[in-house]
């Protein structure tokens, strides 16, 4: 009554305007406008110069950044469990059991295998001829990753795989082989134990991602060699 509530509201919006902790919850993507100090920090990462030195060396850049014209690359900080787009697949680990294809709720994984003739110590494996994932219909539920018994399939960490045509969203086996595999930690406690961050660290090799270390030759011989 009497409009006091209205003015209380005005004060709250003013508080949100002024308080720095309430500002900038928006993340600018793919690049972020920066002021001179942040710019200097960004440059210091690869040039070991002090802020003053940087200021002295690049006066034009400083003026530009004061005018809000300079932007640096930025991405939203995301957790290492993020279920991203680029599937990571390790051919060496995959036996072609097609559990992923079975468990996919949409049936978008297509696997064709043939007898490889490779007789490993651990047992036989199939040669995977076709491994197609129709990313256009994928909903990133991660059931395929959950299903994989040999830790061969992983979720990715990115979200920038958009294409102009729907056909291009089909990922085939060459694509999976050639990609850098930076597996997400989702449903992979062994990676979480190693504090692996798919965004910061480099790609992992097939023998680094398993639930267990690869058994040594003697262990293999003792376990399976007699067969």
């Amino acid at each position: 009554m009497f409009g006091f509530g209205l003015f209380k509201g005005l004060l709250i919006t003013l508080k949100n305007l002024i308080l720095p902790s309430r500002l900038f919850t928006t993340h600018q993507y793919p690049d972020r406008k920066v002021g001179p100090i942040e710019l200097a920090k960004f440059h210091q990462d690869w040039q070991n110069t002090s802020f003053l030195q940087f200021l002295f060396n690049n006066p034009i850049k400083i003026i530009q950044s004061l005018l809000g014209l300079i932007s640096i690359k930025d991405r939203y900080p995301q957790h290492s469990r993020f279920r991203g787009q680029e599937f990571g697949w390790y051919e060496n680990r995959c036996t072609g059991c097609a559990s992923c294809a079975k468990y996919c709720p949409l049936g978008i994984i297509k696997i064709e295998t043939s007898r490889s003739g490779i007789d490993l110590d651990e047992g036989q494996k199939y040669k995977v001829d076709v491994f197609d994932i129709d990313m256009g219909r994928c909903m990133f539920c991660g059931l395929c990753v959950e299903a994989c018994p040999y830790d061969a399939l992983f979720m990715g960490s990115g979200f920038e795989e958009s294409k102009y045509f729907r056909q291009e969203l089909n990922i085939d086996i060459d694509n999976l082989k050639n990609n850098d595999t930076k597996p997400s930690n989702w449903f992979r406690p062994q990676l979480e134990g190693k504090n692996y961050d798919p965004r910061g660290s480099g790609p992992l090799e097939w023998n680094q991602v398993g639930r267990h270390e690869k058994p040594s030759d003697t262990e293999q011989a003792s376990k399976w060699g007699k067969r």
Partner: peptide
Amino acid sequence: EKILDMFEMLCGARVTLS
């Protein structure tokens, strides 16, 4: 948004959680 960030920590997704 803070809640969604926490969900991302739990299960890697923000909206369609499963």
